[in-house]
C-alpha cells in the first residue's frame, strides 16, 4: 500500500482549505444569482443565456478545483473533456432536430 501513497504524494499539489472555502463562496453566490435571475421578470428575455453562463461557471469551478482537474495531469482532463464535448454537441443537436420535428407533428388526439 505504501507505493500508493508515494505515487500520490508525487503527483498532486492540491490547494488548501482556504481555496476550497473561496470556491464554495463563489458557488453559493452564483447559485443565489441564478435564483435571483429567475425571479426578476425584466431579465426573462435573456434568461436562457444568463442561466447557461452561470451554470457553466459553477460547473467549471467544481470540476477545476474540487475535482482537481486544474492541478492533475492533462490526461485526466482529456479523458473527461472529450466525452463532455460530445455530450454537449449531442444535447444541442437533439434539441435542434426535435425543434424541426415539432413543426411536423400531427395534432395529438
Amino acid at each position: 500500500m505504501s507505493d500508493i501513497a508515494d505515487a500520490h504524494d508525487g503527483q498532486t499539489h492540491h490547494p488548501g482549505a482556504a481555496t476550497y472555502l473561496i470556491i464554495a463562496a463563489f458557488l453559493v453566490i452564483l447559485t443565489a444569482m441564478e435564483v435571483t435571475v429567475f425571479y426578476v421578470h425584466a431579465l426573462h428575455p435573456v434568461l436562457v443565456p444568463l442561466l447557461i453562463v452561470l451554470a457553466a461557471a459553477k460547473f467549471a469551478l467544481v470540476v477545476m478545483f474540487y475535482m482537481h482537474l486544474k492541478y492533475d495531469q492533462w490526461l485526466l482532463t482529456g479523458v473527461f473533456i472529450f466525452p463532455l464535448i460530445i455530450a454537449t454537441l449531442l444535447l444541442v443537436s437533439l434539441i435542434l432536430l426535435f425543434a424541426y420535428l415539432s413543426n411536423h407533428m400531427a395534432p395529438i388526439g
Partner: peptide, 16 residues
C-alpha cells in the same frame, strides 16, 4: 495534445 483538445472545445461556442 492539449492544443487539439483546446480547439475541440472551441466547437461548442461555434456550434452554439
Amino acid at each position: 495534445p492539449a492544443q487539439i483538445l483546446y480547439l475541440f472545445l472551441l466547437m461548442i461556442p461555434m456550434t452554439a
